[in-house]
């Protein structure tokens, strides 16, 4: 295509190829343009988030569960993004909002559904069902190809929970000082409803958090407790009966 009358860059490409400084400058310019196009919109991202009530940072136990969700690669089979299509809304519930994943670092929208979408799984099943399903998925879903996650019955590592909250703080999640200070107590309290804990404080800091002995073993705080606490909050923070489409303008 590049004839004698080809464009100026093609005709002079020999010069660029022979002059390393010129080439470096031109590469820098090209990458800057691409970078600007990708990065600049991020500065205005807040304005694209719907204004809805209820979305809060994850409680320490939910956050620990979310970390395990990432570690186990759950997102490779489960999306957390209900698209605004009739079939999806009828099956899963209201479509996902940007606001609902604003405290997710990284978000878990996913791109593949080998298993069902989990964006609204919170409250859909009992804790006992989740435990049974994690240990032996085929016992409740005979056709499921999900592997067993029985290893989650091991104790949860507690030491780093405050650091996890602070790490999220560093990327913009509005955890308060009080939330960070209470993190270790909250972590235990959420999975031990009968124990001596500050449950009122936990629910004040994290409204709608499910307080329960998730895995049926109150003596040990397990990874299973954490993952199910995370499952049970998914999609429950926003009360969709309060909003119509026009309220959700981005």
């Amino acid at each position: 295509m590049a004839g004698k009358r080809g464009n100026i860059i093609v005709r002079n490409h020999g010069k660029i190829e022979r002059n390393v400084t010129l080439m470096a400058v031109l590469i820098a310019i090209t990458i800057s343009i691409g970078g600007l196009v990708e990065i600049v919109p991020l500065f205005t991202i807040k304005t694209t988030i719907e204004k809805v009530d209820g979305v809060r940072p994850y409680s320490p136990l939910e956050l620990a569960g979310r970390n395990i969700y990432l570690r186990e690669g759950c997102y490779t089979c489960h999306s957390q993004m209900i698209r605004p299509f009739r079939d999806e809304v009828l099956r899963y519930g209201p479509y996902s909002l940007a606001a609902e994943s604003m405290f997710d670092h990284p978000f878990q929208w996913g791109s593949k559904r080998t298993g069902p979408d989990l964006a609204r799984v919170g409250g859909k099943y009992s804790n006992a069902w989740h435990v049974q399903h994690m240990i032996n998925p085929q016992s409740v879903e005979p056709g499921s190809v999900m592997p067993s996650y029985r290893h989650l019955m091991r104790p949860l590592k507690l030491k780093l929970i405050q650091a996890h909250l602070r790490a999220n703080q560093a990327v913009g999640v509005p955890y308060t000082k009080a939330q960070v200070a209470a993190a270790r107590g909250d972590l235990r309290a959420q999975a031990d409803p009968e124990g001596e804990h500050d449950h009122d404080g936990l629910l004040k800091r994290y409204p709608k958090a499910v307080v329960a002995d998730f895995d049926g073993n109150p003596a040990v705080l397990t990874e299973m407790d954490a993952v199910i606490a995370y499952m049970q909050i998914l999609g429950r923070m926003v009360d969709f009966r309060k909003y119509k489409t026009k309220d959700l303008q981005q």
């Binding site: 919109p41 205005t44 304005t47 694209t48 698209r83 605004p84 299509f85 009739r86 809304v89 479509y95 489409t245 959700l248």
Partner: peptide, 27 residues
């Protein structure tokens, strides 16, 4: 095209969320 806090809306004024409302209303 994203424009900072907004975006070009297009002459059809299409929105996937409004399209869903229409589809649900039909149902």
């Amino acid at each position: 095209i994203p424009l900072g806090g907004s975006y070009t809306k297009g002459v059809l004024g299409y929105s996937s969320r409004e399209a869903l409302d229409v589809s649900m209303a039909q149902l």
